[in-house]
Design a protein around this nucleic acid. Sequence first.
RNA 1: GCCCCCGUAGCCUAGCUGGUUAAGGCGUCAGCCUUGUAAGCUGAAGAUCCCGGGUUCGAAUCCCGGCGGGGGCUCCA
Length: 624
Amino acid sequence: MRVLQLHSDWIEYKPVKKEITTAEKCEKKRYRFEDLLVLFVSIEEGDNQKVAEKLIDEVEDFMKKIKANKILIYPYAHLSNNLAKPATALKLLRAMEKYAKQKGIETHRTPFGWCKKFSLSIKGHPLAEQLRVIEPKGKKGKVEDRVSEALKAEEKLKSFWYIIKPDGKMVPVDKFDFSKHKGLEKLARYEIAKSRVVQQVPPHVKLMRKLEIADYEPGSDPGNFRWYPKGALIKSLLEQYVTAKTVEYGAMEVETPVMYDFHHPTLAKYLDRFPARQYVVKSEDKELFLRFSACFGQFLMAHDTQISYRHLPLRIYELTRYSFRREKSGELVGLRRLRAFTMPDCHALCADLEQAKREMIQRFDLCVEILEEGLGLVKGEDYELAIRFTKDFYEENRDFINALIKRMNEPALVEMWEQRFFYFILKWEFNFIDNLDKASALSTDQIDVENGERYGITYIDEKAEKKNPLILHCSPSGAIERCIYAMLEKAYRQQMEGKPPMLPLWLSPTQIRIIPLSDSFLSYAEKMANEIEKNCIRVDIDDRALTMQKKVREAETEWIPYIVVIGKKEVESEILPVRDRKKGKIRRMKLRKLIREIKKETADKPFKPLTLPKHLSQRPQFYG
RNA sequence: GCCCCCGUAGCCUAGCUGGUUAAGGCGUCAGCCUUGUAAGCUGAAGAUCCCGGGUUCGAAUCCCGGCGGGGGCUCCA
């Protein structure tokens, strides 16, 4: 509630014309009051009786000071752009009037719903003009939580847990021998027992800052990160890679809006089927939510697309930058869980279950390839398969489920539901297990049996009839940020095992560091760097006035894969001492051989040039 | 949201059984050194000790409140 309070010598007003049909009755004559407090009142959304009474209490206190005892309550809409409904406003205005009268204040009120003309004379003292703003209790600008039906129901859902072995044998979790499957045991414990008691900062959080990849941004909402140049480069390369692989598989890349109408009928229903919280944004009279995946935009697009059975399976892909999930504040952990994240999201419209199953196998292979060849993760060691489905689905499609597990050739954790609650009948994920034994999903795929119909997505079948397709939802890599989390956690584990921690070569911001022994070798180093750059390899030169030992040390702490020191011997012989991080030794070779080796290892990966100054002396320090 | 923890210079930390001018390391800057594979030397700058209130002769230190951050609980990338 907002009130403009004017201590006036007099006010005159005259109702001119009704503005709304529910306007109060009154005479169209001139009214005049003298020596009083005029209260121009805007009743706002969320105001209530308490607010109304509080306002009068405050006014009463004030009037005691200035020794006045007459007020005029004047409904005045122009103080707010968040007005309450007229019915509520009128109710509260009347309540204020009644409450003030009870306190013994001489109270008048102008009619509600009228266009009035008025003139008044304000007393000249310092306290004569005041604005009062009273907020309902507990409001404080907060939008109330919207908890989807799926989120509520999830708590009641009953699950049965099993392990299915590569040979197709299904055993209850508690009967399975985990001795050779420690990762799977951790996943099972994590998913089922839900006991997570570790109290420490996950290793990747320190690494992401130390390596100047990403950092918290206290100036934003938690879970919205800043990305330093090296991190932005790594992230961008990963994005390019996943996109390229997904397009290669046959997906059409599109781009769709990040925000959608909360009250769009189709979307509202879908929101209720997805267990997530949204950010809400207001725009004019609309209430919008920020997307938590690419489903909305792609489905709305598919709805308007002419599709024949010949086009199926139809694959649509978008790299969402960003997807937003307003996770509860205490849930956010470094790069593992964010509120704004980049998720590749690929849907496939399929004619029927048989086609969907065939398609899912293809996508499964795509996901394995991205994790293993792209991120350098190893199944059974870094990540585990979890499959979730309904009992009915299992009974009718046992062979298919076993085929998926056979492909992985590792036992998989299974969650089986008695009945379907979610919009999918089967879902699988690859779960990364980190150094604190926590599991988080990377790649995932689902068979959705509801949204084809809900979104009115149709294709024309062989008999020229309209049909709703099944929809597969896949994130081939999982969130890009989470991929970086997984690689950092893996690197940390390797360090603990006595191996040098590092990122895959194609993602290392600097691939070769050249260290000239003194300034006199700088020009030779520059020449070398140019040659290397021509071959699409990221190189930099440590030209700072430091000792060679110190420069080597810093290059090592930056996890640079190849370090080359240049001095008199190298200039004369052209044989380079290449400090190879992975092999842990210095290998002597010609520049050409080093270039060839790197190009070979990064051959099928995207390349981007270094986005930092080539000379270390020109680089600012972003962290520490 | 609930529970726990934390808040001292760009970063990491000391001081926190109250008591001179808040200490050190890293980094930054200036100068020297021109280096042979993981830390060269000297000097300088840099701190509203998160904010507000209280207790006290005296608060970075104790108490209360707030703000900010992190971690845990639920698991959707």
